[in-house]
């Protein structure tokens, strides 16, 4: 499994986590290149269907980054994202899917370091877990 490079799909909120990722980049912080970032306007705008589609199509993990609770640009989008994550976790657990492959984290525009560390941690965690089984199952 040494040559396994996880493919991670990241949904980053425009106002906080995306700016945090930008800061990590402009500050030349090093972190694994395993995440494909998608900028969204709010973590609350990420419907579970996009998370599930990524996983079923063979992504090894999905990351959602939003503003810290209380700091949402749209006041309450991240609180709604949090509830949706609770629901998604419950459903994934109920059908025996690995909900540790979906991470929600609050990372502000000032937290470039936290962004780089989180992606490093997520990549290491998925490397330890191995590839998603859905990569092998073409008939999903």
């Amino acid at each position: 499994m040494a040559d396994f490079e996880p493919r991670i799909v990241g949904f980053l909120c425009n106002w906080c986590t995306y700016a945090g990722a930008d800061l990590a980049g402009t500050s030349r912080m090093q972190y694994p290149p395993n995440m494909r970032s998608i900028r969204v306007m709010c973590s609350g705008a990420v419907d579970s269907v996009y998370v599930l589609r990524a996983l079923l199509e063979g992504a090894d993990a999905v990351f959602i980054g939003g503003c810290h609770p209380g700091d949402c640009h749209y006041v309450s989008g991240n609180y709604k994202a949090r509830r949706r994550m609770v629901l998604l976790n419950a459903i994934m657990k109920s059908v025996g899917l690995d909900d540790d492959r979906v991470w929600l984290r609050w990372i502000s525009a000032a937290e470039g370091r936290k962004f780089a560390d989180t992606v490093t941690e997520l990549t290491a965690s998925i490397k330890a877990r191995g590839p998603s089984r859905f990569r092998e199952l073409w008939e999903v």
Partner: peptide, 17 residues
């Protein structure tokens, strides 16, 4: 309905790693 509402002081471990 659960997805039409929220509380600030709930599910506080979610998103904290």
């Amino acid at each position: 309905l659960p997805l039409t509402t929220f509380r600030e002081d709930e599910f506080q471990t979610i998103g904290e790693g």
